[in-house]
């Protein structure tokens, strides 16, 4: 087992603990308490008492907190206030849809962005560079849900791709047909963003002495670009990927709504509208955990990319 794995695990546990605690106390700091927030300001005292009992809110805060953490440690996020079914079951049912959307969006953003960034850097200050830069700036000024709407009108309706829903992975064709447009909507803005950052990093590395050495060796310019510029630049690009993923998870919520796609985003929106606060709380905790896991995985990628970290 790699030595850094325990550290990553500790980080995961700590982050989930902090996020969960913040959510726990945040909810209880609402004026009038969660019951008022749930039922509205003009709710009857009887109803409020009933909700308080159901949530265990009449007990001392420290007891509630202890029970909450105990539950969390066993992997339980409590039951839905609306359906009374376990929150984890509802989340697990839709989590794969969100994960595949986020991963596909991230893949499009990173691959497209790195390609465009390397291309524009290779043509620094020449026509392809200007075109690429104007294109990415234009794309950056669109929010992703707007691109989603455009894709529905301009592509889905003409090509006949479905504009809503999601299919399980066991039906790959249907799954892909419902994934492609939302993933594009997520990925396109990312492409523009990653392209700009990649271009900047590439230009920086291309000015370094070791690139001149590589050129003086007489190797192909393609090799110079990939092995001697992109590879040293890929560490900051990968860490950008970690940040990008956090933004992407947030965007996924909107995109799922635009494409009426089941997932954490739609689940959270529905739960908020229904004031199902255990569900919201559970979803927030799961999102935090996903973000930590993804960033931890990226850290493993860094080690593969950069020997200066690997050797330490």
């Amino acid at each position: 087992m790699p030595r850094y794995l325990p550290r990553l695990l500790v980080r995961l546990v700590l982050t989930v603990f902090v996020v969960a605690s913040a959510v726990f106390f945040g909810v209880r700091m609402v004026p009038g308490g969660p019951a008022t927030a749930l039922l509205g300001a003009d709710a009857s005292p009887v109803d409020i008492a009933a909700v308080n009992e159901k949530l265990g809110l009449e007990e001392p805060l420290i007891v509630q907190y202890g029970r909450f953490l105990g539950q969390l440690a066993t992997g339980s996020l409590g039951n839905s206030l609306v359906s009374d079914r376990p929150v984890t079951a509802s989340i697990m049912a839709v989590l794969p849809h969100t994960l595949e959307l986020a991963i596909a969006g991230m893949a499009i953003g990173m691959v497209g962005g790195v390609l465009l960034g390397v291309f524009t850097a290779a043509y620094r200050n020449r026509a392809p560079d200007y075109i690429g830069r104007v294109l990415s700036l234009t794309l950056l000024s669109f929010p992703s849900y707007y691109i989603g709407v455009l894709l529905i009108f301009l592509v889905a309706l003409r090509v006949g791709l479905p504009t809503s829903g999601a299919a399980p992975l066991s039906d790959p064709l249907q799954n892909l047909s419902q994934l492609i447009l939302p993933a594009l909507a997520l990925g396109i803005v990312g492409t523009a963003y990653v392209a700009r950052v990649t271009r900047g990093l590439m230009l920086e590395v291309l000015d370094e002495d070791h690139v001149r050495t590589a050129r003086a060796k007489g190797i192909s310019e393609f090799r110079v670009l990939i092995r001697h510029a992109l590879q040293p630049a890929s560490l900051p690009i990968a860490s950008l990927g970690g940040l990008f993923f956090i933004v992407l998870i947030g965007d996924a919520v909107l995109i799922e709504t635009v494409f009426a796609r089941p997932g954490l985003g739609t689940l959270m929106v529905d739960a908020m509208l229904a004031r199902d606060y255990t569900m919201v709380q559970g979803a927030v905790i799961v999102v935090a955990a996903v973000i930590v896991v993804v960033n931890s995985l990226l850290e493993i990628v860094y080690r593969l990319i950069d020997p200066r970290i690997r050797v330490k």
């Binding site: 070791h210 050495t213 060796k217 590879q231 020997p307």
Partner: peptide, 23 residues
């Protein structure tokens, strides 16, 4: 490209920065 490194090679001032750090 066929001349560089084959007929004529070059070495530079700062060996700290003239080699690729990741290879």
């Amino acid at each position: 490209r066929a001349v560089r490194g084959v007929d004529v090679s070059m070495i530079f001032q700062d060996p700290m920065t003239s080699l690729n750090p990741v290879h």
